[in-house]
């Protein structure tokens, strides 16, 4: 008999996955249920919005935003 686990499947690039694993470690491993492969993770359904917020924060720190279009009107 197979085992069935309820959760949310995350699909992302390996780079993003490693950031998520990092965030998970900082949060007492409360987010990720199972590490499936390089690009997939199973996480707790209730944590998806927390994770999104934390990931956005993290990306904001690391990603450079392109210079805005000059607005001349």
């Amino acid at each position: 008999m197979p085992r069935v686990i309820r959760g949310t499947l995350i699909t992302c690039e390996p780079a993003i996955k490693s950031i998520i694993m990092h965030i998970n470690a900082e949060n007492n491993n409360e987010i990720v249920i199972e590490d499936l492969d390089d690009t997939h993770l199973l996480i707790k359904e209730s944590k998806i919005y927390d994770l999104k917020r934390l990931l956005d924060l993290r990306l904001k720190e690391t990603l450079k935003v392109e210079a805005p279009l000059d607005d001349s009107d």
Binding site: P2, R3, G7, T11, I16, E45, L55
Partner: peptide, 25 residues
């Protein structure tokens, strides 16, 4: 840019007794 990860709620199936059972399902 905002979709660094895709997510879908659902169910993970694992620990099947045999590969045939897994594959069939």
């Amino acid at each position: 840019e905002t979709e660094r990860m895709a997510h879908a709620p659902g169910f993970l199936f694992k620990e099947f007794d045999s590969f045939e059972e897994y594959d069939g399902m």
